[in-house]
Computed example of a mutant assay.
Amino acid sequence: MTSDYALKIAAELESASRLRTAQFLVTQRPWLDLYGINVRPVAPFGSVSREPSVDEALIHRNLPDELLFEIFSRMTPYTLGRAACVCRKWKYTIRNPVFWRNACLKAWQLNGVAENYKILQSNYDGSWRKMWLLRPRLRTDGLYVSRNTYIRAGVVEWKITNPVHIVCYFRYMRFYPSGRFLHKISSQKVKDVAKLMNFRTSKVDCMFSGRYTLSEDKVEAALLYPGLRPTVWRIRLRLRGTTAGANNRMDLLSLVTSGVNDNEVSGPDEDILGLVEGWQEDETHNPDVPAVSHNKGLTPFVFVPFDEVETSVLNLPVDKMDYYVPG
């Protein structure tokens, strides 16, 4: 007779033999083959240390560096930023200071070339790209939009209901590098107004033009409302961005309207900003039009690029977005 101890040992040996014959599924890890392989970085375009090499990418073999450089020179800085994410070669090529120098001189052309070079050396270590990212500037590739809402009482019927309505209107501003800007107040959505914000339609679509100045992050703008009693519209803004180089927000610091004499201005195209320079906020030159400092409708401006006007959330109706937080 076999003992219980012997039966127990035999059962354990049988289970161990089954483990030796079992086949386990091993997960393949192909990325482990990449360890220890050194990838040689691509030298920047035009570098003296660049050695001739064969690029495996088809677009780089068929597109010469000179032609690639010419294509990049015709792009906007924001398009260059997207192109830099394509590959390493494009990233180093786009860091060429020629692209960023042209963009900076165009963005701050009111300061003059000599002043821009002085600011470049003193504040940005001679880097045009760093200057583009860190120096406040007004964007010209879209619209600055301020969405304002207020509650208005409706008509009371039979003293049973007391309806109220949420009224929504927008302030639109488009800036140009030459120091001019367009302003429009409308209840139309962004996608409908974007196609009208130009000087060709400014006189027939209740749009007004004026002048602005930019000093660091402060913007001062003024325009003239023509009519029987000409009125000067003055606004002060502070430029900021949600990320470095975005410049996609403007805080409205003050908004003042005041009167002006007929003999002081000759038309809406006059440099009205130079005329009101040094005026106090409560100063008016026409007693029939008192100076008024407005404290409503001062919602911050949000920048909407032209390629995003159709999909912007600012196009949503009031019943879907009663209030908008610019951030």
Rank of each mutant, 00 (worst) to 15 (best):
H60G: 04
G241C: 06
Y117Q: 07
P41Q: 09
F69Y: 10
V276E: 02
D269Q: 12
T93Y: 01
S258E: 05
E70S: 12
Y92I: 13
P226L: 07
P317R: 02
R174Q: 15
L63V: 08
G154L: 11
P163E: 10
Q23W: 09
W90G: 01
Y172R: 00
V232S: 02
S258D: 03
L134C: 12
Y124C: 13
R171D: 15
R229I: 00
H294L: 13
G142N: 05
V260M: 07
K91W: 14
T242S: 14
W31D: 08
P268L: 10
P136S: 09
N263A: 15
S293E: 15
M75T: 11
N315G: 12
L273R: 05
R171A: 09
R200N: 15
V302T: 13
P226H: 10
F170R: 07
H165T: 05
K106L: 14
Y5T: 11
V156A: 05
K184A: 05
C87T: 01
N162H: 15
T242Q: 11
S186H: 10
L133E: 15
T161G: 15
R234T: 10
V145E: 07
L298N: 06
I9R: 09
L68S: 12
M207N: 01
P326S: 06
E310L: 08
M131R: 07
I160S: 08
K159F: 04
A107L: 05
V265H: 04
V265T: 11
R18H: 11
R18D: 12
L237P: 01
R61H: 02
L58G: 04
Y92L: 10
I59F: 13
S53E: 09
Y176M: 03
V193G: 01
A6P: 03
I71E: 01
E51K: 14
E14T: 08
F306I: 08
F99V: 10
F170G: 07
E216W: 01
P52L: 15
G245R: 06
D307W: 03
G267P: 02
I160R: 12
L275S: 00
S312F: 01
T2V: 12
W132A: 12
M207I: 12
S202L: 08
K106H: 15
N116F: 01
P163W: 07
D4C: 06
Q28D: 02
V54A: 15
A84T: 02
E66R: 08
T140H: 13
V26F: 03
L224N: 04
A103P: 06
P136W: 07
K184P: 00
A84L: 03
G142R: 03
Y78S: 10
H60N: 08
A83D: 00
N263P: 01
T299G: 05
V86F: 00
P268Y: 01
D262M: 04
N247P: 00
L298A: 09
G245E: 11
Y78N: 04
R95E: 15
P64W: 08
M173K: 05
N96D: 14
N315P: 06
C85F: 01
R240D: 13
R95Y: 14
D125C: 04
S178H: 07
C168L: 13
T140C: 14
T243G: 05
N96T: 03
V193L: 04
L224G: 00
E308A: 15
Q280C: 10
L253D: 09
A107D: 08
R95V: 01
Q121I: 06
R180I: 07
P177E: 03
P41H: 06
T213K: 09
S293G: 10
R101W: 11
